[in-house]
Design a protein around this nucleic acid. Structure first.
Length: 319
DNA sequence: GACACGTGGGA
DNA sequence: TTCCCAAGTGT
């Protein structure tokens, strides 16, 4: 395991004259959070494969793609299969994109598989087969946005970046801002806060990123938060305020049943299991409405997830 | 900024 | 059973 670096004890006095929601003016609002959270992380962090040294930058990157909107437990087995089969970006880049989609299995959002394959190709062609270390170069890769670029740079290379995922956003919303949930979409205020809270030291910053994320994943969860096990419960603005109920606009709920997404999922499931090209007549059985069915299939084709062949045949893309 | 985009487990 | 949600990105 990694050596438990003793975090510098936060001896700074408690914030005084700031209203719970106001952190704009403070010098280092929440510096006092780093120590306890990192110490808690050293003690309670899960032993996940992509956190082991042998995972390397490619392992970190693969895990970040898979973890986008997908729970850890479901990612675990697929991650192991991928890294065994494609231990380096160049190994994946050699494969047809459809193989990535097939190996993605039931993780969901299969476009991520396509983009990860595209990223592997780009890394092989433009970066000599090594996951780039530069944030801007990471951001330029398909499927990598602000979060993933920061996460890879921080977790794989120990760099100092604000890593603002849904877990960290929730932790900051509660501990610092004093509200139950962050806004639906990430705001400039949240980015500013995350940057202000970033420890100066690179090593501590990357540790803080992982630790605050883990706290949100294990303790400060969306439902049933476990304040009694939280290392910063005594400083949490939301808890100190009496844990007021979320008021703002309703939290976005995603519908699924009956949508094109569900149809796409069924179509792709058939194609993943198939060895060779699949006749349209077989695909037709997955959904009754022919209009929606055709629209979904067209969408998959235009997304590059499905390749149409002459004679009303379909398969996962070879190119 | 709002939407589309998969899937399955837990409460 | 229904609802909520899980390390986001691209358009």
């Amino acid at each position: 395991m990694t050596a438990p670096t003793t975090p510098a004890p936060a001896t700074a006095p408690v914030q005084t004259d700031d209203t719970p929601g106001s952190t704009a003016t403070g010098q280092a609002p929440g510096t006092v959070l780093h120590g306890p959270v990192i110490a808690w992380f050293e003690q309670h962090a899960r032993d996940l494969p992509w956190r082991r040294p042998e995972a390397g930058p490619w392992g970190v990157m693969v895990s970040e793609f898979m973890l986008q909107q997908t729970p850890v437990n479901r990612v675990l087995p697929v991650y192991e299969q991928w890294l065994t089969r494609w231990p380096r970006p160049a190994d994946l880049a050699k494969e047809p994109p459809g193989e990535a989609v097939r190996a993605w299995g039931r993780l969901g959002y299969p476009r991520r598989a396509l983009r990860l394959h595209g990223a592997a190709v780009a890394i092989t062609e433009r970066h000599g087969g090594d996951v780039p270390t530069d944030h801007a170069q990471l951001l330029a890769l398909p499927g990598i946005g602000e979060y993933t670029a920061a996460a890879v740079a921080s977790f794989a290379y120990g760099q100092r970046h604000p890593v603002l995922d849904t877990n960290v956003r929730r932790v900051l919303a509660r501990a610092v801002t004093g509200v139950q949930y962050p806004p639906n979409a990430t705001t400039a205020a949240e980015r500013r806060l995350a940057r202000e809270l970033l420890p100066d030291d690179e090593r501590t910053a990357s540790r803080w990123a992982a630790a605050s994320m883990e706290l949100g994943a294990l303790i400060c969860t969306a439902k049933n938060e476990n304040c009694h096990r939280c290392p910063i419960a005594t400083q949490c603005a939301w808890r100190l305020a009496g844990k007021p109920e979320h008021d703002g606009p309703p939290r976005r709920g995603q519908t699924y049943a009956g949508t094109d997404r569900q149809v796409r999922g069924r179509l792709l499931a058939v194609l993943r299991e198939a060895v060779g090209p699949v006749p349209q007549s077989v695909l037709d059985r997955v959904w009754d409405d022919p209009v929606q069915r055709a629209r979904a299939l067209d969408g998959l084709v235009s997304d590059g997830l499905v390749e149409p062949l002459p004679g009303r045949l379909y398969r996962l893309p070879l190119t």
